[in-house]
């Protein structure tokens, strides 16, 4: 879409007049007919979120200060910050925090670096060819998580799995228990999650790169800019809003996406080396039917994610050219 110019603002070689004009008009158009219209459009999403997310969330906040087994026959007992104190003492909590941070960072090569490279290089080949590759890169997305876990379990198997066979051929004598060795298990979980998500992020980045107006590239090519110059002067700057958005997405969802693989492959082990925020909440909270731990850990991780999101959006605003 040609019109993307307007959104992306002060890029390097961008026509500035278009953006200014749009900005002025938006202001005037907005004043013409405000009042109720936008609220009507927002209503369905807002109502659904209030009923299914905000209401239970507030309840969880409230319950985190009470001692209660959730049964209607008993009444909640106020217990102040006891649940939070208990949370800190629960084995695995600090591991969960650290591992979550490691996963957030560890996933970035799969969710950002590789997809960006793929999307950029996709520009260098024909669209038909790149669509073909992208189709293949997307395929892991459609695979059922249980099946993906099963496949990787067999590949990583210590008793004859493909990876160990390969290593043996390369001269590694002792077979490695990848999923049961604290040195490797977390890396494996990150890899599997990343493998599953690369296609998703490639789709997002690819659309964004394809949406950049070809006019810039033509102009740049006429100025004699080569592929790399175009990449650094046009593609990356114009991609920056998407980059910020996707980085945020990847970081905030690392824990949630790896949850299934932790649950099916390692159950947080060995020695809590793969437990993360989501698995902690699930295993120590929900599964244990402990309302206190479920709610206090949900509150803590919610606030933690919120803090990270705040920092990221602050940094993102500075790095991004997206200034509508």
């Amino acid at each position: 879409m040609k019109s993307d110019v307007l959104t992306y603002g002060p890029g390097l070689a961008l026509p500035r007049s278009g953006r200014n004009r749009a900005a002025v008009k938006t202001k005037r158009g907005a004043l013409a007919r405000v009042c109720w219209q936008p609220y009507v459009y927002l209503l369905p999403a807002l109502v659904l979120m209030c009923v299914w997310i905000y209401y239970p969330l507030l309840r969880t906040f409230y319950l985190s200060f009470f001692n209660w087994n959730m049964l209607p026959t008993t009444t909640p007992q106020f217990c102040g910050l006891d649940n939070f104190a208990k949370l800190l003492r629960t084995p695995g909590f600090s591991n969960a925090v650290v591992n979550t941070l490691v996963m957030m960072v560890g996933l970035l090569p799969f969710s950002i670096v590789l997809p960006v490279l793929v999307s950029i290089f996709a520009k260098s080949i024909t669209k038909r060819a790149s669509a073909f590759y992208r189709g293949m890169i997307f395929v892991p997305m459609i695979l059922a998580p249980v099946a993906a876990a099963a496949v990787f379990r067999w590949i990583l198997h210590p008793a004859g799995g493909l990876l160990n066979q390969l290593l043996e051929r390369m001269g590694v004598e002792e077979s490695i228990s990848f999923l049961n060795d604290p040195r490797y298990a977390l890396g494996c979980i990150i890899f599997i999650t990343g493998w599953k998500m690369t296609g998703f992020f490639t789709l997002l980045f690819y659309s964004a790169v394809q949406n950049i107006d070809d006019g810039y590239y033509q102009a740049a090519a006429m100025d004699g800019a080569g592929f790399w110059q175009q990449t650094f002067r046009i593609t990356l700057p114009l991609l920056s809003p998407t980059l910020v958005f996707n980085t945020m997405l990847s970081i905030l969802f690392a824990s949630s996406w790896s949850f299934t693989y932790v649950d099916t492959l390692t159950q947080g082990g060995p020695l809590n080396s793969t437990i993360n925020a989501y698995y902690f909440m699930w295993d120590k909270g929900f599964r244990t039917s402990s309302s206190g731990l479920t709610s206090s850990s949900a509150v803590v991780f919610f606030l933690g994610f919120g803090l990270i999101a705040l920092v990221l959006s602050h940094v993102g605003q500075k790095l991004s050219y997206y200034d509508n």
Binding site: R153, H157, P158, A159, S177, L179, G269
Partner: peptide, 12 residues
């Protein structure tokens, strides 16, 4: 005693 997970031991 080996170094496998439970499921891996079952398969092994």
């Amino acid at each position: 005693h080996g170094t496998m997970t439970e499921e891996e031991a079952t398969e092994a």
